[in-house]
């Protein structure tokens, strides 16, 4: 007998069936479930959705993926608090549906798109990328998404669109970390247009085969694997094409420490951390340092973007 694939319980859901049941029980009891369940708390059940996608082996590493639990409980997402566990604890406040994204600036086809309209034309693919944080730790994440360039082309950027700027949602009620001016909210990130059009630059809407958990930047985020993690803007509400290099949040907050480019580079140290090595999260050993690679191991693909540039100056 042939069972249609839609009838098969996805492995991830199968493995997490107890969590799902707990989630349902928690909702039924009206309990403040994520707070009660601690850092490994699950998303409200209605938002966990198995995604349909194909695997992109060409752009995927064969390294062991970080566990789902680690990737969703150890996050830098200051909109929910500056502790690594804060996003998992606080992100249930975010409502990733309904969602819309404003597109403006130097393009022929600006507008405001609902999330559904934005996603509709793009077939999803899985790409297993290395993620290198500027704080010298790293993960391996199976993202689900589509190339950023394919999205941007739909808006027909003009010849004056030298850069593209991304903005995260600003709403202190949904994002309690924004009640304190730790950064100048909203969070702004940006890429040079050729970086944005590079096939490795991804818009992610999921990970591990499922809808993106809120603490990982739901409902859509950037993933730029050859740059430090902070470049990958989360919970995006605005895409702005511009002629001038955007003043990005961390560069504004500490220009000596964070540049616009922020390419992973073991030869250029951060004032507070050596960038020569990184700690791989969940490696199963306390001694988990490994060497950091130029462009996070994506030099073959992206080094040409920076030919002739002094990367120590444009860090």
């Amino acid at each position: 007998m042939k069972i249609p694939s839609s009838q098969i319980t996805p492995e991830r859901m199968y493995l997490r069936r107890r969590e799902l049941m707990l989630g349902i029980a928690g909702l039924a009891a009206g309990a403040a479930m994520p707070a009660a369940a601690g850092p490994a708390a699950v998303m409200p059940v209605r938002l966990i959705e198995r995604l349909a996608y194909s695997r992109n082996a060409r752009y995927s590493t064969t390294e062991t993926a970080t566990s789902f639990a680690d990737a969703t409980s150890y996050n830098n997402f200051y909109e929910f608090g500056t502790g690594k566990g804060d996003p998992a604890e606080q992100a249930h406040r975010l409502r990733p549906r309904p969602w819309s994204v404003a597109v403006d600036g130097e393009c022929e086809a600006p507008g405001r798109l609902t999330l559904e309209d934005l996603l509709k034309p793009h077939p999803l693919e899985e790409r297993i990328y290395r993620l290198r944080c500027v704080e010298a730790w790293s993960m391996v994440i199976p993202w689900i998404g589509f190339p950023l360039g394919e999205l941007l082309r739909r808006f027909q950027p003009t010849s004056r669109a030298k850069y593209v700027e991304f903005t995260t949602l600003l709403d202190p009620r949904q994002m309690p970390g924004q009640r304190y001016p730790v950064l100048d909210w909203p969070y702004v990130e940006g890429l040079r247009i050729d970086e944005a059009m590079h096939p490795l630059a991804l818009i992610a809407v999921g990970l591990y085969g499922e809808t993106l958990p809120n603490q990982n930047g739901a409902p859509l985020r950037l993933v730029v694997p050859w740059k430090y993690g902070f470049k990958s803007c989360k919970s995006i509400v605005r895409i702005h094409f511009t002629e001038r290099q955007p003043l990005t949040s961390w560069a504004r907050s500490a220009p000596r420490e964070y540049g616009f480019y922020a390419n992973v580079n073991p030869a250029v140290d951060h004032p507070r951390w050596s960038q020569k090595r990184e700690r791989r999260i969940g490696s199963g050993s306390l001694l988990s340092r490994q060497p950091t690679l130029p462009f996070n191991g994506y030099a073959t693909e992206v080094a040409a973007l920076y030919r002739g540039m002094d990367l120590a100056r444009f860090f």
């Binding site: 639990a69 409980s73 150890y74 690594k84 700690r279 199963g284 306390l286």
Partner: peptide, 16 residues
């Protein structure tokens, strides 16, 4: 925390 398997109580980055 160190003695328990996978250092669960110490989170994703036990060294930190």
């Amino acid at each position: 925390g160190v003695l328990r398997p996978d250092w669960v109580a110490l989170g994703a980055n036990p060294v930190e």
